[in-house]
Design a protein around this nucleic acid. Structure first.
Lengths: 218, 218
DNA sequence: CTGTCATTCTATGAAGTGATAGAATGATGG
DNA sequence: CCATCATTCTATCACTTCATAGAATGACAG
């Protein structure tokens, strides 16, 4: 009877490790690929010291592991399932919390004035790639692209979008993706490319979800 | 950019709601069936006041809903997926946390002296039921059994096990189940029934997992 | 419309969490 | 073996969470 509750308490520790926005941001970044503390601190906007502390907590909860590489500590997710776990939590939150719906709405509302910006589902994307009729565009920073991306994706970081337009065809539909459903990069890219006359839509998921689903990555 | 972090903060609230052993216990009890505050307080060993507070938090996180029924407030899980969420968290914790492994080991070790107590998988159970060669035994308290159980299960609450033995056949294999993988009831039942000469094994999951998988319940 | 029962609210103190700054550690390159 | 860089550890303060006890609310039965 007592060890029953001990188990739940231990499980609760894991949940508590997930119970902080900054730590979730760290996990989301780690889902893009392994990274050192400073990289993680920069992309999440934390100080190095603070990021380190949060990473310790994630480590104690068994969610990340760290290995030393020279002066740096490289952190990685222990488990592909952590991506699924966050995804499931997201789904539950989205369908049960009004606040969540409001925030998601706000994220998507800005650019949906023109309508017809529905995101492309995984199924639809697979079909499009199969048929060869679409071009896949990865708008994440180059380092994230290089540590893993969808097959045959072209990488144009959002910051260099206008400079590298020559790599995009005008005559095929473009599907843009980035870090995940809450990542703003692909939204932004779609908006800007549409203004330039491209036929482009957004993939509703991102690289981590694709990988966690067991689909091929490069 | 900012609403990106707001989303993660909101998501973190949900995780924080899961980040307490007592609240997980409440959710596990609710996975057995809807219940009033006092029932929940009794089965989790909390005072009514404290249970009520925890339930408020779960409600704010969108994990449970409450409806009034006369003097009582009946709480229920908002979503079948919450069972999956806890299950996934459990899996991640079990494979990445040494402490978790230790506790699970302890829960199972006591009665495994004789060996051969491997639990029955869902697949195996389905096959056994199909063939009609096994009898399914639900050892949870009657009120939980009545708010839902596996098809064709016989209910003998653990407390009345010896009194109601006449309902169990000697010539067929018995498969016992209870609230879930961490629930001790079916372990205990298996141990005691074996001593009495029954051929009996434990189902490795419980009622909530069965139901969450979309399998038929009564 | 009063008493009772189930539940929620409020106030309190103890314990835990999060951010900051600065000291300490560990690896590396001269 | 000293200087540097990346990271972790430590101490501190503000803030949140948890359990408890007792008051307040809301529904119902007489």
């Amino acid at each position: 009877m007592t060890s029953q509750q001990d188990l739940l308490d231990t499980l609760a520790q894991v949940a508590r490790a997930l119970g902080n926005g900054h730590r979730l941001a760290l996990l989301e970044r780690l889902a893009q690929g392994d990274a050192a503390v400073e990289t993680l601190a920069v992309t999440t906007g934390l100080t190095v010291g603070n990021a380190s502390q949060h990473l310790q907590q994630l480590r104690r909860a068994g969610l990340v592991t760290a290995t030393r590489a020279g002066k740096q500590m490289i952190y990685r997710l222990t488990d592909e399932r952590i991506v699924s776990l966050m995804g499931l939590m997201r789904q539950v939150a989205e369908s049960n919390l009004a606040e969540m719906e409001r925030l998601v709405g706000r994220l998507f509302a800005e650019d949906d004035a023109g309508g017809s910006l529905e995101a492309v589902s995984r199924h639809e994307l697979l079909a499009g790639l199969e048929s060869g009729k679409v071009v896949l565009l990865d708008v994440r920073p180059t380092d994230e692209f290089e540590s893993g991306h969808l097959p045959e994706a072209i990488n144009i970081p959002l910051a260099q979008l206008e400079e590298m337009l020559d790599r995009l065809p005008h005559d095929r539909e473009i599907i843009a993706y980035c870090r995940g459903p809450y990542c703003a990069l692909s939204h932004e890219a779609v908006q800007r490319l549409r203004q330039l006359g491209y036929r482009v839509r957004r993939f509703e998921e991102g690289y981590p979800e694709w990988k966690a689903a067991g689909l091929p990555v490069t």
